[in-house]
């Protein structure tokens, strides 16, 4: 009799740690929960994510969640369409400053690699951009152009680690274009005073 008790006791000693290990493995730590969640979430089901009152275009590429939309650019360009001025018409001297884009400060590319206009703008049709192979790119899809040098940023932008979504985390994915945040001619962010300030920690 004693032996049976002893044996069952030993068995119990063995079983308890195994059971507790199992409990720990499914213990609901955040990393475990993330690891276990591999089923795509239908974020269109959140019906309070309305369409934005902004002009967007369907992205020409895909992200891990399928298709997405980017903020349109053309409506925000002051002097679009470019071909209105870029014609064979003669230019008056008094309009020269305006017509030669004297207001644009170029600060894109470092040192001797500073960019010139036609490295991004199409030489023949000014209503388009052009990549290094000469392929025409629409202003609304400038990410295709920026991505030829900034391919790391573009990869992260498609995935979601660079740039940002507009207003909603759910619903159809609407993200900002490169030019929504960066000025294409001087893309670095400026230094400025912060929006507000914080009191010292002990107050």
């Amino acid at each position: 009799m004693k032996k049976i008790f002893l044996r069952s006791g030993l068995l119990f000693l063995f079983l308890v740690p195994v059971a507790s290990l199992n409990a720990m493995a499914s213990g609901g730590g955040v990393m475990d929960r993330i690891h276990d969640a591999d089923e795509p979430f239908d974020s269109m089901a959140i019906d309070s994510a309305y369409q934005l009152p902004l002009k967007t275009v369907r992205g020409k590429e895909k992200w891990q969640g399928g298709q997405f939309r980017v903020l349109a650019r053309k409506d925000f360009i002051n002097k679009f369409r470019c071909s209105v001025c870029h014609t064979d018409k003669k230019v008056l001297v008094k309009n020269a400053a305006l017509f030669t884009h004297g207001d644009i400060v170029m600060n894109h590319g470092q040192g001797d690699d500073g960019l010139a206009c036609i490295q991004c703008h199409d030489e023949d049709n000014r209503d388009f951009l052009a990549d290094s192979s000469g392929k025409k790119i629409d202003f609304d899809h400038s990410y295709q152009l920026c991505g030829q040098c900034h391919f790391r940023q573009k990869r992260d932008w498609l995935g979601g680690a660079h740039g940002k979504r507009d207003v909603y985390w759910a619903g159809e994915r609407v993200i900002r274009n490169c030019t929504s945040c960066h000025s294409p001619h001087s893309p670095a962010f400026k230094t400025k005073m912060p929006e507000t300030y914080s009191l010292p920690l002990d107050q």
Binding site: V30, A37, G160, H162, G163, R165, W169, C181
Partner: peptide, 14 residues
Amino acid sequence: GSRVFGNLLDPDSE
């Protein structure tokens, strides 16, 4: 764009 927010249970999320 330094702040990324989303659903951790959605494998496709940002």
